[in-house]
């Protein structure tokens, strides 16, 4: 195996892993944009997506599209419930209180997942049966293409939603000033609910597409959440394109560090990069001034 092939392999792996970080980061951003809350249960949505899909596929033997649709629906309902039962009832809560609530919810989700599925990891079959193929002597799993393709579709749909629909614009308005939005006749509560629904749906999609590659078990959420959070900070909280680019960069840094420096320190290196960014440019690399950390 020559050097080019090695490099290509590292880059491909980095992009695949990075795409998942990007999806998780997007989930953070949607809720942040509307509520300024950082939803630490975002990683749990990914886990639930993966595990519910396992139930749909391996237990109910549903076909891929049906299972996909049902899984996203189930997790979306959980996201809506999370907002209705834990976020909405809190009156006059400040952002910090709500963030702590999301941590509590993440622990509850993790506990439930453990009770239902146990501690074992679960596998899913790849979406397409095709064998791995080679590109510049590097090997690509077809599922990696699914991950990249679906991430791209999600990003495009989200951008269109926020840029061109009334609802999307209303959600962004809530982020700028909930008071003013309310006066303008925007139902803020409904917008918050929709933000949770969207985030849960994206988390579920991420869980479904990576489970065939990486397996899924009940306590995977914390680390995925952390990496996704890293992506959304690096890209500038609230910026969608920023989260995607930063997620991919984070994945690439990890993979290249593991390849050329030391696989033992790859997580440390990724986190150090994150810290440096926070020291030098706390608003993240790709965000405008508006999206800098407003409340902290």
């Amino acid at each position: 195996m020559n050097d080019t092939a090695q490099l290509v392999q590292y880059i491909l792996t980095g992009i695949t892993v990075g795409a998942i970080y990007a999806l998780v980061g997007l989930g953070y951003n949607i809720i942040y944009n509307v509520t300024e809350v950082i939803n630490f249960a975002q990683g749990e949505f990914v886990v639930l997506g993966g595990l519910v899909m396992v139930f749909m596929t391996n237990t109910l033997h549903l076909s891929l599209p049906v299972g996909f649709f049902l899984t996203v629906s189930v997790v979306t309902i959980l996201g809506a419930l999370m907002d209705k039962l834990t976020i909405e009832p809190i009156k006059d809560a400040n952002v910090l209180t709500l963030i702590i609530i999301t941590i509590a919810v993440s622990i509850i989700f993790r506990g439930l997942a453990m009770l239902i599925w146990g501690r074992d990891p679960y596998a899913l079959p790849a979406f397409s049966k095709a064998p791995p193929f080679t590109l510049f002597h590097a090997i690509i799993q077809p599922q990696a293409l699914w991950v990249l393709g679906i991430t791209t579709i999600v990003v495009i749909l989200l951008s269109l939603f926020f840029r061109f629909t009334m609802m999307g614009k209303a959600m962004l308005a809530c982020a700028d000033s909930p008071e003013a939005s309310r006066l303008m006749g925007i139902p803020v509560k409904k917008m918050v609910l929709i933000s949770f629904v969207l985030s849960a749906a994206i988390g579920a999609v991420a869980g479904i597409v990576i489970t065939p590659i990486s397996l899924m078990e009940y306590d995977r959420g914390a680390l995925l959440g952390l990496k996704g959070f890293g992506a959304s900070i690096l890209g500038g909280l609230g910026s969608f394109s920023g989260a995607v680019i930063a997620g991919l960069i984070l994945g690439l840094i990890e993979s290249l560090c593991a390849g050329y420096v030391s696989s033992g320190y790859k997580d440390a290196i990724a986190l150090i990069v994150l810290l440096l960014v926070l020291f030098v440019k706390p608003s993240g690399f790709f965000a405008g001034k508006r999206a800098s950390l407003k409340k902290f």
Partner: peptide, 16 residues
């Protein structure tokens, strides 16, 4: 080569 218990991919380690 080393990796974390929650890593999602070991392709890099194996490539090395």
């Amino acid at each position: 080569e080393r990796y974390g218990p929650k890593d999602t991919d070991l392709t890099v380690q194996l490539t090395k």
